[in-house]
């Protein structure tokens, strides 16, 4: 029984690895030199709008200031979503906040990425049975990087940034904003389940070219 389980897990791992590699190969081959250069610049320069929703927000200031100084990796904070490439959602989202998070996300121009910081944004964390917070941020907007922990240390957030930079540089995993556009109906249905019809600026519908 035990052995069977272990081999089952190993099989799963192999399969996952294989599919990851296949994916990587497939996309890498299609990247031209110019695209590679552009991706390199995109990875080297990240403007962040830090949406401090939960208690995890308290770990962001040290990351951006003298102690951990993430500016050495080319990551700087900006004040408005219009200029941002990355949004950090730091912790639980109450329903009221989620509306604003979605609005902010949709105002960012592409390419845009989202980092979900802390267990609450990943699976609900210690708020998993709360009546007014959501459990999985990935159901509502396209999340690119999950940083686990309750709350995650600044080092963890920096690691998240470095991994995201690798991903952007290699362009080997489909970014969340493309998923968001392609599966818009899925995300939209989830959003509507919570808010009914009373959300969404009209422009998102224009720019995905969909009838909703």
């Amino acid at each position: 029984m035990q052995e069977g389980f272990v081999s089952y897990i190993n099989d799963q791992k192999d399969m996952a690895q294989a599919s990851l590699e296949a994916d990587t190969e497939g996309i890498k081959n299609t990247q031209t030199v110019i695209q590679k250069a552009i991706n390199w610049f995109r990875a080297r320069s990240m403007f962040v709008v830090a949406y401090g929703t939960g208690c995890g927000a308290i770990e962001m200031p040290p990351v951006f200031t003298s102690r951990y100084d993430i500016e050495r990796l080319g990551v700087v904070g900006v004040a408005t979503p219009r200029q941002a490439d990355i949004m950090i959602v730091s912790g639980y989202c109450s329903l009221k906040t989620l509306k604003r998070v979605i609005r902010t996300y949709e105002q960012m121009s592409e390419p845009k990425y989202v980092i979900a910081l802390g267990s609450c944004a990943i699976n609900g964390g210690m708020y998993w049975d709360s009546y007014n917070t959501i459990k999985k941020l990935d159901d509502y907007i396209g999340v690119d990087m999950f940083v686990t922990g309750c709350m995650p240390r600044p080092e963890a957030l920096i690691e998240g940034f470095v991994k995201l930079q690798d991903r952007i540089k290699n362009n080997n995993i489909e970014p969340g904003y493309i998923k968001y556009k392609e599966d818009y109906q899925f995300y939209r249905a989830n959003q509507e389940r919570l808010f009914g019809k009373n959300i969404a600026p009209a422009f998102i519908e224009d720019y995905t070219g969909m009838d909703i």
Partner: peptide
């Protein structure tokens, strides 16, 4: 702090 690389502003502008 260490600060960004000197060419950081180029990277920002090209991005």
């Amino acid at each position: 702090r260490f600060g960004p690389s000197i060419a950081q502003s180029f990277y920002d502008s090209i991005k």
